[in-house]
Every structure is written in C-alpha cells, then in structure tokens.
Design a protein around this nucleic acid. Structure first.
Length: 458
RNA sequence: GGCCGGGUGGCAGAGUGGUGAUGCAGCGGACUGCAAAUCCGCGUACGUCGGUUCAAUUCCGGCCUCGGCCUCCA
C-alpha cells in the first residue's frame, strides 16, 4: 500500500512521491491571530495533524510548517476596537490557539513561523519580483502583475476574463489590472509598519506564506494544505509569487479540506451559528470534538451538529469501554494494515474509524490474555495515528466540563458504589437499586462486572 | 452568469461493474438479582429518466435538487 492523495492541482487522486524519498515537507496555512479559534479553524488543524501523524509513520523525516499570521488588517481593526496594543492581542490569541488545539490532541508542527519575524524575507522576495518584471510599484504599494504570469489561475481553474467579470469590489485606481494583488502596502504612523525600499509599510496577505514556506521547505516542496476557501485567491497568489520569484515549481500536492456547516447551514457570524473551540470544550471532551471532525472525509463539506458530537462521544465510550474491560497491559506498536490502508487512501478517516470499531469488537470477544493484549495493542496503535484513545479510560469516563456545577465528587461516587455493593452482597436489591437510581439521576451510570463496578458520567 | 462539489437504509457516513461497510437508533436472543456494558441474529439503501453492459448504486448523458466559490474567510 502506498499513500494516495487528492491533488487540487490535477483534481484527482495521485500516488504521493516525495521530492526526497526520506524527507517530506508540508506547509499548512495557520491562523490569523485576532480572535478565538472556531470550529472552522479547527478542521484543517485536525485534518492535517492526522496527515502529519501518518507521514511520520511512512517516512523517516517530516518537516511540518504551520504559520502564525500576526500582521493583518483584521488584527489592526481588533486592536483599534479593543484599544489594546497589537502584540498583546496576537500573543494572547496565539496562546489561546495553542491551548485550544492541544485539547484537541493536535501535535505541534515542526516549525511554527510568525509572519512578523520574516518581513525581511518578504521584502527580498518582492524585490526579486519587481526585478524580474512580475511586480510594480504604484503610490507606495507594490502589486503583483497578474497578466505577467501566463498560467495564472491554474490551481483554481479561473481565466483572467472570469476574474475581471467576477470582480465585485471597486478596483483601486493604482492597479494596472483589476486582478493585480497587493504585495506591500503603505502604513500610516498608527499602523504596524516596516522600512522598505517603498517606504514604511506592511506586507499583503499572501506574501508571508511564500516567503516562509520557501525559507523552511525550499522553493519546491511536497505538500501544501489549507481550507478550500483558500484556493482562491490565497493559494493561487502564493503560487504566482513563488513560481515567478523562484523560477521553480512551488508545492507539488495541494490538499484542501472542505467547508464547515453548522446544523445544515453555512457557518457565519450573522446567523449566530458560530462555535469557538473553547465553547465546545465546555460541552464535550476535546477528543470527542476531534473524532467528530474525522468522522467524515476531509474533502467533503462537514456538517457540524450537536447530534454528531453526541455520536462521537458514544463512539469513544464504546472504544474506551473495550480498552477498560481488557485487563491486560498492551504496548501499541504499528497500526494494523487495514487502518493504515484506509488512511493511505487519501486520508479516509471514516473508514479508519469503522476499523476501530471492528478492532474494539475483536477486543471485546478476545478470551485469552494473549489475544486481548494483541487486540488492545492494535486498537491503541490505530488510535495513535488518528490522535485518539491515548488517555486513561477511567479519565475519559470521568470527564466533566471545567467549572461544572459540581455534582458528586469521584470519591463520593465511589463511596455510594461501595454502599451499593454491600447492599447487593446482602441481597438488599431494593437498596442497591435505589442507590443506582440516585446516581443515574445525577448523570452517573454504573456497570457491573465480575471484577467490580465501573461508572461513567454522561 | 462562470467554475466546483454533493444527493446512499430512521440518522450519521464509507465504498464498490456482480455476496458483508461501520456506528447510532429499532426489533429478537444470550448474559445479568434487575439493569448497564458486551456478544449473537434481524433491514427489498444507493435523487430521477434514459444509455452502455450478461450485469449499474458504481461508467456515460439529460433532468431535478442541495451546497459552495467568483479577491474578508480555515
């Protein structure tokens, strides 16, 4: 089995062959740090985290770059609205982002470059583009000249005519062509700015990714990922900048995750159907949010629903139940072939999850300790590739939201269970059922096993 | 208008030119003091109309329908 990926460039699945057979390079567009991460931001972070985990199992070395965009007009606006310094906002939002996605079991990328630390590289790239005739200066701006690139639009499959016809905004007077886009723009004294050959200014939106991917992965690299909404204009423009500046191909495989909907409707602030990761973490464990996201194929639109989240929790309940019931030690080794095969087929996470269920059934049916250990190891290893099932099962079942209107403490629950066990031994089933009913009313479900009684919060 | 994706059983959601997805829900059974969990069994699913084929949910075409993008957006 070999890795196959759907490449937006060719609109088909292709066998993945890295430039260097022993070292894969991947770049994924990270967040603009002006506001809390929402589930739409979380999807690519989770999806490409799975791809990263998969790649590290298939290749000796993987460099995964995910940037932080900390210079942007949305950030400037936020600073103005809040009356706070920009660096305070970006530092705080970055910290929140890291905290949130850690709850989602997302591994840190190899390198997480910040845009503001790479202004010099951006300026150098812009100078090259001007020198090569792909960009021009106008009224303190530097613009990329779209007509100067013959095959502009190849990723999003748009022609120049379409883009001109489709222009919805007023074209800035300094643009030679309405499709031209900004590489550098002037800053007023109240805005962040850096000295440049074109005066004090700040970079346009797209140039940072070209500059940083080039620095850390080289001019031509393997995989570039992001949300489908970035295909045009962001990724199209990244390609234009990098290809024209470097005179070399840019990313070889382009991967895009589908859009996120909420309860069947497009997620948007005006509809109010907008969840931040933090809000969801108050409702469900991060692991359930993660599994929920992975329960449909990354390329499909994903409909986020309360029911879906509930099902993801139920799935993890089932899997952790199997792990908890198997009283054997097991060290996860390599993930089973069928799970790897599913993931290697363009990251078919729903199929991989189906295999998780089959592994759990096998574990539940295993009788000898050897069989149990084997099945448990397979399930744990599979969970590892997907980034789930890595915590202690008891911890999973005891989860409750932070600052939950504190119900019974763990020790109070265990005391009641002991009382019930004593009643059962005395055949006082009226009393034991009364205790069980009492706990159910408090959201605690008991399960009796030969080895003893376990409990879980619902 | 241009360009993209979709329409699978009650629900979610893979996949395939010809027997099984998987899970949840439901029904029956085993187990249990009773439950829960677990195991076993149970479902005339592939928008529509045509075409190709020995055979189509799967390939091709028309139609209906849903959603997205077209320089704010993961």
């Amino acid at each position: 089995m070999a890795l196959v990926l759907y490449n937006t460039l060719t609109r088909r699945k292709e066998a993945f062959e890295p430039l260097k057979p022993d070292h894969v390079g991947m770049y994924v567009c990270g967040p603009t740090v002006y506001d809390s991460a929402h589930i739409g931001n979380a999807r690519p972070v989770i999806v490409f985290d799975v791809l990263y985990r998969l790649l590290t199992r298939l290749y000796p070395a993987v460099t995964y770059v995910r940037n932080i965009t900390d210079v942007d007009d949305k950030i400037n606006q936020r600073a103005k609205d809040l009356g706070e310094p920009i660096d305070i906002i970006t530092a705080r939002t970055t910290k929140m982002f890291h905290d949130d996605i850690a709850e989602l079991n997302v591994l840190p990328p190899t390198i997480e470059p910040r845009a503001t630390a790479h202004i010099n590289q951006m300026i150098a790239m812009i100078e090259t583009l001007i020198a090569k005739g792909f960009a021009y200066e106008a009224e303190g701006h530097v613009l990329f000249s779209v007509p100067s690139m013959s095959d502009y639009g190849s990723l999003s499959r748009r022609s120049m005519d379409e883009m001109i016809a489709g222009a919805r905004v007023e074209v800035a007077p300094y643009k030679k062509n309405s499709a031209d886009f900004v590489l550098w723009k002037p800053s007023t004294p109240d805005l962040p700015g850096w000295d440049s050959p074109w005066g004090r200014g700040r970079p346009g939106w797209h140039i940072e990714c070209s500059a940083m991917s080039g620095q850390y992965l080289g001019t031509t690299f393997d995989i570039h990922g992001g949300g489908q909404d970035l295909v045009f204009p962001h990724h199209e423009n990244e390609i234009a900048q990098s290809v024209c500046a470097n005179g070399a191909p840019f990313a070889r495989y382009w991967l895009h995750n589908g859009y996120l909907m909420v309860e069947g409707e497009k997620m948007s602030k005006s509809l109010g159907n907008f969840f931040t990761v933090r809000e969801l973490l108050a409702q469900a464990p991060g692991e359930a949010i993660r599994l929920c996201m992975l329960s449909s194929h990354y390329h499909q639109p994903f409909d986020w629903t309360a029911e879906g989240l509930k099902q993801a929790r139920a799935t993890l309940d089932r899997l952790y139940t199997a792990l908890r019931s198997a009283n054997v030690d097991a060290e996860p080794g390599a993930a089973p072939i069928e799970v790897m095969a599913a993931l290697e087929d363009d990251l078919n996470t729903p199929l991989a999850i189906a295999h998780l269920h089959e592994l759990a059934t096998a574990l539940n049916k295993a009788e000898s300790n050897a069989d149990k250990a084997k099945a448990k190891a397979a399930l744990l290893a599979s969970g590892q590739v997907l980034g789930v099932l890595q915590q202690d099962a008891d911890a999973w079942f005891k989860w409750q939201p932070d600052g939950a209107a504190a119900g019974l403490s763990d020790s109070e629950i265990e005391a009641l269970i002991q009382a019930r066990t004593d009643a059962r031994k005395a055949k006082d089933f009226a009393e034991s059922d009364r205790i069980r009913k009492h706990l159910i009313d408090l959201g605690i479900i008991l399960e009796d096993f030969p080895q003893g009684t376990t409990w879980k919060r619902v």
